[in-house]
Design a binder for these strands. Structure first.
Length: 649
DNA sequence: GTGAATGAAAC
DNA sequence: GTTTCATTCAC
């Protein structure tokens, strides 16, 4: 499987082979580039170092641009991709942040399935939560725009520019280069902007790709330094305006960088990596992640950024800006967290999952904690993140292949078109509503998992919780219950939707045999559950809410397990399944056509869910399930408990 | 390369 | 109102 590490690893190869144009994400570039060919093996550990080193070198040299660029001529390859990526929207941010969790929970589930779940989750998400993400997205976008003033959302369209050869590179690079922008201080970093094509190329090429995330950081750091030369470490906020700007851009970059996938580097390194990242984020005292590296160089920038961030936060209190920064900061954290999660997930999967998580947790937790304290803003409580973040780590080098070149010529737009066409076909085939369903269907397993998961969540209401770690914040004071309830519930429904299709089939057959079938399912579920690492993330606070809705059995675990919502879910799987089925049955009626549009569907689901809840359907179902699965549950529960403990640790 | 989701911008 | 693209990665 590429999957495990592969997913990202490939990128590494990519360089040479050059594949995956898509990946190009900003994040990827840098890292990938770093991965440099030099290393053949050892790579993992050293890769990281190198990665950092390279940038460092550049930094040292001072002329980052030229040399760096030069170094990697290859970079041209990147150039194709260099084009800045669109900033993620709220949903994407959400996905990025939580995907790993979902995947952890459902190892089998592929991204598509995870996306579905996330979508459901998103639908259910409290407005507040959404708002947070929305805000973050906004901030992110703003920062992005600042960085890339001239950026057009769909460069592709512009393609004209892209003439085969240079055009491409320019366009993409531009993005990076663009940042230049205007007036802002950040301009320094961006300096090369687009104004001159030539320079730009160099600059653009060089920086982003070669420099990699670090490079970016360096640049940012420079700016920052400039702004706050003063503050080498303590700086507080000095925050001059400039600093702020810088910080922002820096943050933005940081976010991008952070988002860069964790490096494939081996899991073993994770610990180290993690530490390095951690310190970076944490802004902790500078510790050199790796002695080898010129720490000062490397760290400095990163460290500075971190400092800035932290300082900004502290300041922020007084200033309004904080919001923006915090958002960005959060974003960065999210990215890191997500990566970390990934790392964890991967590493954990093979082995034992939960344990690994715990370990990581502990490790990073401290750092994270600090951050959280500082940052913690309301926003992302993200428990998840915490866990994941910790893991984080690795900076990886990921790499994706820069390569890609490819298509770029045409411009992404074209490429996309293909996709779209496909989609269209699908849609056209069926009604709107149906179309969705049809799509959903792809893999039974995934669907099942997702369904199970959803069901569980619904039963417990965990989902809502999970998602929102922030929810904790309490969403609702008075309303809380309703909102909370709904969300989870909705989720369920939502989920059901995807499942429905699958389930329908199953249900029809299964329902008849429910007795046996359930048992089997439950077992299956358990199996899955076991496989799944169980995560953690959870939100204890939610529990209460959950309980409210789901008084029944699961509660036991829920309380403790807050983190492991997923876990809970799993437990429920067994139980839930049956219920699920039923719900689904009902849903079909409602959902189907009504919800032609995505939103509408979600809404419908939500409504249905509410209805069901009100009716007490869920409760009754659960009860039934519990009874039916009693023995099975016992098993599961035990397992769950264990899990919980873990998470708790 | 595709898909699965949502959302934002461009068209 | 439609397209494109953003993220992620197994397939």
């Amino acid at each position: 499987m590429k999957g495990g590490g592969g997913g990202k690893e490939p990128p590494v190869e990519g360089e040479v082979s050059g594949k995956r144009p898509k990946r190009k994400c900003l994040q990827w570039h840098p890292l990938l580039a770093k991965k440099a060919p030099d290393f053949s093996e050892e790579e993992e550990e050293e890769d990281e170092e190198e990665l950092e080193k390279e940038p460092v070198l550049c930094a040292e040299s001072g002329a980052q641009e030229g040399e760096c660029v030069g170094i990697e001529d290859d970079s041209e390859e990147y150039s194709s991709e260099q084009r800045a990526r669109r900033p993620m929207n709220a949903f994407l941010l959400f996905c990025k942040r939580h995907r790993s969790l979902v995947r952890q929970e459902h190892p089998r589930l592929d991204n598509r399935g995870a996306t579905k779940i996330l979508a459901d989750w998103w639908a259910v998400l409290d407005p507040k939560e959404k708002q947070k993400y929305t805000d973050m997205a906004k901030e992110y976008k703003d920062a992005f725009m600042k960085a890339n003033p001239g950026y057009k959302w769909c460069p592709a369209t512009n393609k004209p520019v892209k003439s085969p050869s240079h055009s491409v590179s320019n366009a993409r690079k531009k993005v990076w280069a663009l940042p230049s922008n205007p007036s802002k201080d950040s301009s320094v970093a961006k300096k090369h902007p687009k104004t001159d094509s030539t320079p730009q190329l160099n600059f653009a090429m060089a920086d982003p790709n070669k420099m990699g995330g670090l490079s970016m950081l360096l640049l940012a750091g420079e700016h920052a330094l400039t702004a706050r030369e003063i503050s080498s470490s303590s700086s507080q906020a000095g925050g001059t305006d400039v600093a702020k700007h810088t910080g922002k851009s820096a943050l933005f970059q940081l976010a991008e960088i952070s988002s860069s996938p964790a490096q494939p580097a081996g899991g073993s390194k994770n610990a180290e990596d993690t530490s390095s990242l951690t310190h970076v984020e944490a802004s902790g005292p500078s510790q050199p992640s790796s002695p080898d590296l010129p720490k000062s160089c490397v760290k400095s920038p990163l460290f500075q950024l971190a400092e800035q961030i932290s300082s900004s936060r502290s300041q922020s209190g007084s200033e309004g800006r904080q919001c923006g920064q915090s958002a960005l900061f959060q974003l960065a954290e999210m990215c890191l967290a997500s990566e970390a999660e990934k790392m964890e997930a991967r590493s954990s999967q093979p082995s034992g999952g939960s344990s690994s998580l715990c370990a990581q947790h502990s490790t990073s937790s401290r750092d994270i904690t600090e951050h959280e304290e500082q940052a913690d803003a309301p926003e992302l409580p993200l428990t998840t993140s915490s866990s994941s973040s910790s893991s984080s780590s690795t900076s990886g080098s990921t790499s994706s292949s820069p390569t890609d070149a490819t298509p770029s010529d045409l411009s992404p737009c074209k490429t996309l078109k293909k996709k779209k066409k496909k989609k269209e076909n699908k849609d056209s085939d069926e009604n709107p509503a149906s179309s969705k369903k049809a799509k959903k269907r792809h893999s039974p397993e995934s669907d099942l998992d997702s369904v199970m998961f959803t069901i569980e969540a619904v039963a417990k209401g965990a989902w809502g919780l999970e998602e929102t770690p922030r929810k904790k914040s309490h969403p609702s004071g008075s309303e809380s219950s309703p909102t909370m309830d709904q969300s989870p519930a909705v989720k369920k429904k939502t989920k059901s939707k995807p499942k429905k299709q699958l389930k329908f089939k199953d249900d029809s057959a299964e329902e008849e045999e429910e007795g046996d079938a359930e048992t089997n399912k439950s077992q299956d579920v358990e199996m899955k559950t076991e496989e799944a690492p169980l995560t953690p993330k959870a939100e204890c606070e939610n529990e209460p809410d959950m309980k409210v809705e789901t008084p029944s059995g699961v509660e036991d675990m829920a309380p403790h397990c807050s983190p492991p919502q997923p876990t809970e879910l799993e437990e429920k799987d067994t139980d839930t399944q049956p219920p699920q089925t039923r719900q689904e049955d009902k849903e079909p009626e409602v959902k189907p056509e009504t919800c032609g549009s995505r939103k509408s569907e979600r809404s419908c689901k939500g409504a249905l869910y509410k209805t069901l809840v009100s009716e007490g359907m869920l409760t009754s179902l659960r009860a039934n399930v519990d009874r039916g699965n009693a023995h099975t549950d016992t098993h599961t529960h035990t397992h769950t408990l264990a899990t919980c403990s873990f998470s708790v640790c």
